[in-house]
Amino acid sequence: MTEAALAARDIEFTFSDGRQAIRGVSLEIARGEPAGLIGPNGAGKTTLIHVLAGLLKPQRGTVEVFGEPIGVDGDAGARRRIGLVFQQTEDQLFSPTVFDDVAFGPLNYGFPRGEVHERVRDALRRVGLEQAEDRVPHHLSSGERRRAAIATVLSFDPEILILDEPTSDLDPRGRRDLARLLGSMSQARFVAAHDLELILLTCRRVLLIDEGKIRADGPAAEIIGDHRLLEAHGLEAPFGLRGLGARALEDLIARERSDG
């Protein structure tokens, strides 16, 4: 049996106000696997992501990264193998310049200083922001900010990439660029989004979460093509995908991917 890149077992998480956000979630993401997480507002997507990344400590259950338990706060060992891109890029890009922000992770994780320069330049090149090194993140466009946010995690080369609503502030072209960028990555990816088209384009597997529980887990085209399932959990396929079954969706994805 191959070792899972990310494994969560029987996770329970309740906020301090007594609201239970995650109820007995177990999941595994294989090495290099692109998986999506969909669900209505308030379903527990962001909370689950924060638990998986070690930012929230579950009251019950365990999270393992390549078999190593993830700690909360001080323990950077397993966490450095996870790159988390937050929903709000304004919060993720907290440094005075884009360069400083992209260098923040590698410097904290102890990469040699000479190598950090290379890593920053390489990460910015991969997201097409070579010219933005000295800019203040606040003055980037939404699309540029999103790409810079991804560069901040690519620079320390995580083996698992977790993205929370990565298209929430992107126009159609920015979304297409992001899909292409995600498609070019070899890391395991876990993308939480309302954007079902992006999930279809970038993920082979989809997990559906509602009221803190995983309600469905299977091939992307099957889950997103099951309109009754989506409707039962407060989701709706985009206009262009309505009425298309799993087979038709698979054909559509294949065509989109071949068109680049």
Partner: peptide, 22 residues
């Protein structure tokens, strides 16, 4: 609220109280 989210974003990239600089 933003302060809390920024702290999370920093911790997620290995922050342990010191801001590193090149």
């Amino acid at each position: 609220e933003r302060t809390r989210r920024i702290r999370d974003a920093m911790v997620a990239r290995g922050y342990r109280g010191e801001y590193p600089s090149l």
